[in-house]
Design a protein around this nucleic acid. Structure first.
Lengths: 214, 214
DNA sequence: GGATTAATAAAACGAACGTTTAATTAATTC
DNA sequence: GAATTAATTAAACGTTCGTTTTATTAATCC
C-alpha cells in the first residue's frame, strides 16, 4: 500500500512527537524501538524517517524544543521590575508550573542526555546552563542587596533547582494537592533556604533593634 | 578454550559488579550489552551467565545491594539519643557522604527503575520507601517537639531528599569543595528549610523576649 | 593421582534492531 | 484532467542483541 486517505504531514509529525515523549519517558530512549513508536502513531516504521533522519535526531529535537520552551516561558514570566525577591518568586513558580505541565518531556530532557552524541549534547547543555544562570543571577543580586543570606551562590542555585524539579517525581495532578498549593509550599521553603528577609526572622530582628534603641 | 589459569569465581563476580555499575551509570542499562560488559571484565559473554541468570537480574542485584547498603549505613550512623535535630544532622551528613562515595551506583538505582519487571521493581521501591520514612519520622518528631517548623512533612521530606541527592549531579571530589564543606553547606540549607530553632532566628526570639521582660 | 567440580571459551540460536529501497496511492498544481 | 508532489506501505538489509549449548581446561577432593 501507500499514502492513506486523509493523511497529513503536519498531523503525523505532531503525533510522532507526542508519542515519542510518552514512550521515552516511560521506557527510556534506548528501550523504545522505532517500530514501537510507529505502532503507537499508527504508521509503519519507515514513515518516521520522513520526519526525522535518525532516532537520535528525534530525541535531540524533543530535548531542544523542551529547553527552548522553558527559556521562553521564563522570559514571558520574568517580572519587569528588578526586585530580586519578586524575580525569585516568579522563577520558582514558573519552574514548577512548567515542569508539572510537562512531566514527560522533563523526564526525557533530564534522563536521556547520555544518549546524545557530543555535538547534540553540547547544544542541550548550553541551553540548560543559560537557564541555570538566570537563577544564579537572581541569587547574587539578592545577596548583594542584602535581601538574601546565601553561603554559596552556585551551590544554592543547584540545590534549589534540584528541589523544585523533584516535584515531578512524586506530583500527580489529580491527588491531594493542587499545583498552586505545592508551589506555595515550595516557595516558602525556597525563601527560608535563601534566608529571604520577609518573614518572622526579619520581624524579630527589627523588633530586637527597636527594643534596644529605647 | 576453557577455564583460564588463575581464574576465580569470587574475583570474577566482583569484577562483573564493578564493571556493570560503571558501564550502566555511564551509558544506561539498555545501552550496555552483555558482550560489552564481558569485554570490560575480560571474559566472554557466556561467562556472565554463570553468575547472573539474566541481564535484568544483574541490574536488580546491583540495586538491591545498593539500597540495603544505604539502609545499613544509616542504621550505623543514626545517633543513640533521640534528639530530632541530631538525627536530622546525621541523616543529611550520612546521605551525602554515602551518595558521593557511590555516585555511579546511585545513578543506577535512581535512573534504571524502569528497566525492572514488576516484582523486582516492587522490592526496590519497598527499600526506598523505608529509607524515606526515616526522614519523615525525624521531621515529624522535630515538628512535634517544636524544634522544627514544617508545613507538610511528606512534601518537605521529598524536597530535602531531592536536594541532597542532587549533589551527585555536579559534585566531583577533586574540585573546589571537599565533601565536608559541601555537607556543611547543605546541612545549613536543610536547617533553614525546616526552620530549625538553632540559629539567629532563635537567638533573636529569645533576646526579644528577654528585652520585653525587663 | 584419578575423579569430580568450577570456570571459562567458542560457536551458534532465533529474534529484534535502526535504517534503506522501491513501489504505490492521495492530494495538489496548472 | 494530466503531471507532479507528498505521504505512506511493504519488504528487505546487515548488524547486533540476550541467551543457550557444548566442549575444554584448571583447580579441588579423596
Amino acid at each position: 500500500m501507500a499514502r492513506t486517505a486523509g493523511s497529513d504531514g503536519g498531523r503525523t509529525e505532531a503525533a510522532i512527537r507526542e508519542a515519542a515523549v510518552q514512550l521515552i519517558a516511560r521506557h527510556g530512549f534506548e528501550a523504545v524501538t522505532m517500530r514501537q513508536l510507529a505502532a503507537e502513531v499508527g504508521v509503519q516504521a519507515a514513515a518516521l524517517y520522513r520526519y526525522f533522519p535518525t532516532k537520535e535526531d528525534l530525541l535531540h529535537t524533543l530535548m531542544r524544543e523542551h529547553m527552548e520552551a522553558l527559556l521562553g516561558a521564563w522570559e514571558a514570566a520574568r517580572p519587569d521590575n528588578d526586585d530580586p525577591l519578586a524575580r525569585l518568586t516568579s522563577f520558582v513558580a514558573n519552574h514548577i508550573r512548567f515542569h508539572v505541565e510537562r512531566r514527560h518531556a522533563t523526564h526525557v530532557s533530564n534522563m536521556e542526555l547520555r544518549s546524545l552524541s557530543r555535538d547534540n549534547l553540547t547544544s542541550i547543555l548550553k541551553l540548560r546552563t543559560a537557564y541555570e544562570k538566570e537563577l544564579r543571577t537572581i541569587l547574587r543580586d539578592g545577596a548583594d542587596a542584602g535581601l538574601l543570606d546565601i553561603d554559596d551562590t552556585g551551590l544554592t542555585a543547584m540545590a534549589i533547582i534540584q528541589m523544585i524539579t523533584g516535584v515531578i517525581v512524586w506530583f500527580r495532578p489529580d491527588e491531594r494537592l493542587s499545583v498552586d498549593e505545592v508551589t506555595a509550599t515550595y516557595l516558602a521553603m525556597t525563601m527560608r533556604l535563601t534566608g529571604a528577609r520577609t518573614n518572622a526572622e526579619d520581624r524579630h530582628v527589627r523588633q530586637d533593634a527597636e527594643l534596644r534603641a529605647r
